[in-house]
């Protein structure tokens, strides 16, 4: 019975993907993509990876969809003419070839699937964390996560570098060009506090149950964006030191903890024995804060002309 449901889910995902590729007009392509993201979230739940489902829905289709929507709205370039039929057929054939290759490989995967699950289970107690994924992210493969926060920060630097020279220290553009609307403010006043609470809970629970820095950070970023869109918060001045210090908290904090690892536990990014949980929570808090600010600023975009509101 559940196989039928999974088959239906896969079919929906394929349809959404095809719609996203075949749609002519920019907006419907993004809409289809967001639907695709949400369906993938369900697929992840079916694959028993709730952490990833949260990330996929929050970041993969939520914030990404928001960024793409903003880009579609601002990119009023005329839709270039579609590719010739012959080319499309050729591309289709080649894509089918790739599908055949991948499908064959998936079908021929080794039967006793090699896995690191036992290895993680064996070392999990040493990190006294409950959630194995958070353990892998923050302890076993800590360098990847550190670099990932730097990648996010770098993307933000890249986006800011696109602004004209004179507005380097200005404010980002208006998110919602519509005039003030009572409904939005009412919604924001009600949902934002609850959302912040949910975000903090997700970060806090991440140590033992599905959740974590990235998912919590994404929810917090969403709440910040809703507050700014509703006018509860002013659009931040990007050159302000405090804002940039928040950006640095995650990566720099993680780096400092890593260096401390040399001092206390004779390896970079090793956590001092005995106080792992406390240090890990501290690091995750810093990362959550930075991710929330970075994601929000990435959606807000580069600083444009200084406006006197």
């Amino acid at each position: 019975m559940s196989l039928a449901f999974d088959a239906l889910l896969c079919l929906l995902a394929l349809l959404a993907a095809l719609r996203a590729v075949a749609a002519g007009e920019g907006f419907s392509r993004v809409a289809a993509f967001m639907a695709y993201g949400l369906i993938l979230g369900l697929v992840w739940v079916r694959l028993a990876a709730v952490d990833v489902a949260l990330t996929e829905v929050a970041v993969g289709s939520g914030v990404t969809g928001l960024v793409l929507l903003r880009a579609v709205a601002r990119d009023d370039a005329p839709a270039p003419l579609a590719a010739g039929l012959a080319y499309r057929l050729l591309a289709g054939v080649v894509a089918l070839l790739v599908f055949a290759g991948l499908a064959a490989v998936v079908l021929l995967l080794p039967e006793p699937a090699p896995s690191l699950a036992p290895e993680v289970a064996r070392h999990l107690p040493a990190t006294d964390l409950g959630n194995p994924i958070t353990a892998v992210l923050i302890v076993f493969r800590a360098l990847d996560t550190l670099l990932e926060t730097v990648v996010l920060l770098l993307a933000l630097i890249g986006v800011w570098a696109l602004s004209p020279d004179r507005t380097w220290a200005g404010r980002p553009a208006v998110l919602l060009p519509a005039p003030w609307s009572g409904a939005l403010e009412f919604l924001a006043r009600l949902v934002v506090p609850v959302g912040v609470l949910v975000g903090l809970y997700m970060f806090w629970a991440g140590a033992d149950v599905p959740g974590g820095a990235f998912q919590g950070g994404a929810v917090l970023a969403a709440m910040a964006l809703m507050a700014i869109a509703a006018g509860l918060l002013p659009r931040p001045v990007l050159a302000r030191r405090r804002l940039r210090a928040l950006l640095l908290a995650g990566p720099f904090g993680f780096l400092l903890v890593g260096v401390l690892g040399w001092v206390f536990a004779d390896a970079f990014l090793a956590y001092p024995p005995g106080v792992e949980k406390a240090v890990i929570i501290l690091v995750e808090a810093a990362i959550t804060l930075s991710i929330a600010v970075t994601l929000a600023l990435l959606v807000l975009g580069p600083p444009v002309a200084e406006e006197t509101e």
């Binding site: 690191l116 290895e119 993680v120 070392h123 302890v139 076993f140 493969r141 800590a142 360098l143 690892g261 536990a265 004779d266 390896a267 970079f268 990014l269 090793a270 956590y271």
Partner: peptide, 9 residues
């Protein structure tokens, strides 16, 4: 990194 040897680290 972190003292964990491959394949885990």
């Amino acid at each position: 990194i972190g003292g964990w040897r491959p394949p885990l680290g």
